[in-house]
């Protein structure tokens, strides 16, 4: 299945302007790093859904993924990249402009 983003409208980044990804990026923006289980718990998404959206964000370069082994158990951590943080801030600015909110 190919996920084709909608064209950029009103300055809203189509990669972030999606219900689940907005939730994920909002959570990551408030942390230094978060692992897969933390994102599962805070977003309430299913494993498959979260995994697919993370793959999308990682391939866009908005999120850095690091896979390590802790006590021989795989551990996947995510961090919002500088590009991702910049895009999210830009998205928030556009959103505020559209909704007419100053805060």
């Amino acid at each position: 299945m190919t996920l084709s983003p909608a064209p950029r409208r009103n300055g809203l980044n189509p990669l972030i302007h999606e219900a689940s990804r907005l939730l994920i990026v909002s959570v990551l923006a408030e942390c230094e790093t978060a692992d897969f289980n933390f994102l599962l718990g805070t977003t309430g998404l299913t494993r498959g859904n979260l995994s697919a959206h993370m793959a999308r964000l990682v391939s866009a370069g908005y999120v850095c993924e690091s896979k390590t082994f802790l006590d021989r158990k795989p551990h996947t951590e995510y961090r919002l990249s500088p590009a991702g943080r910049k895009a999210f801030n830009q998205y928030l600015k556009s959103w505020r402009r559209l909704t007419g909110k100053s805060s």
Binding site: M1, A6, E18, T46, N49, S51, A55
Partner: peptide, 12 residues
């Protein structure tokens, strides 16, 4: 990954 429910939808 199970992408069955990973549909694209703008947030309300």
């Amino acid at each position: 990954p199970n992408t069955q429910d990973a549909t694209e939808r703008a947030p309300t």
